[in-house]
Amino acid sequence: MKCVTCRGPAIIDIRRHNSNFCAEHFIEQCHRQVRKAIEEFSMFEKSDKILVAVSGGKDSLAIWDLLLDLGYSVDGLYIGLGIGDYSDTSLDYARAYAKTRSLHLIEVDVPSTFGFDIPNGSRAAKRVPCSACGLSKRHLFDEEAIKGGYDVLVTGHNLDDEAAVLFGNTLHWHTEYLGRQLPVLPARDGFPRKVKPLVRLAERETAAYCIVKGIDYIVDECPMSAGNKHLGYKNALNEIEAGSPGAKHSFYFGFLDRAAEFFAAEASIDREGLGACASCGAPTTSETCAFCRLVERAGGQLPERTGVNAVSVDLGPTRSGSIQ
């Protein structure tokens, strides 16, 4: 197997590109794909203040490293979710990466700040753990990005993540979610701008990037995620990809090019009636935001209202559900 660029020994094949790469040219390929995503979707500029959500896993550490390589100035944000040893270990990886490179890592610990952890809190609130975890992270990402005055929040969602979510949303025709499944969500009404610069890289490539660059990350899967639907969708798509290289890319980018616009109106309807959470001030379509309801049901303490991400609109009519 030879590198398509230099004809030296290759270390990885990327079948959807019909290409093999040596270590040096694989890193160049990753840089090229991330740069292309940033430019194609006008994600951010070098002058922007950037915050990356870091979990200690391969994707978030890879995108932090890639952005630094590409000359961006980026701080990290770690959310501790109280998932036993898994959270402790993942924090160690995030801290180690930041420390060795003298980077700023913001840490928010859910158990000590809000009085609940994901395993027990999700059980008490009668929510699926991954749902409570995702809800908590999204809320705290938004809050910290706004509080810190960041221009943009970067997440490590890769091509596999986006294709799997698209698969699930299409399978169940969640049209309101399809309308906002985009690589860039503009800042709006108390929400920070959110971008996904890894959408052109598969997760096999982000893992390979970390290995080649010597970035240590947590390899074992979160113990709460076993058997969840998202992983099932990824496995199903990888079965298709194995027989049809490029299928995931075509599925996701075909959606962006030819279908996403048809669902945009549904996404905007879901954001009508946006007001400020009576408890924490975060934007919500209900009187109290979904995170504050989770905290209360999980037996935690409701956060004090800081107003850091309060929206500038009056409280709208109470609606069921939340946009978070």
Partner: peptide
């Protein structure tokens, strides 16, 4: 990383590392 066409021989010790991760987005 070990490429797909490489042959494993005497006393090789390898790790097969999963790359699939993630819960709800």
């Amino acid at each position: 990383l070990v490429p797909g066409d490489e042959s494993l021989a005497d006393d090789d010790a390898i790790e097969i590392r999963p790359v699939i991760s993630g819960g709800e987005q």
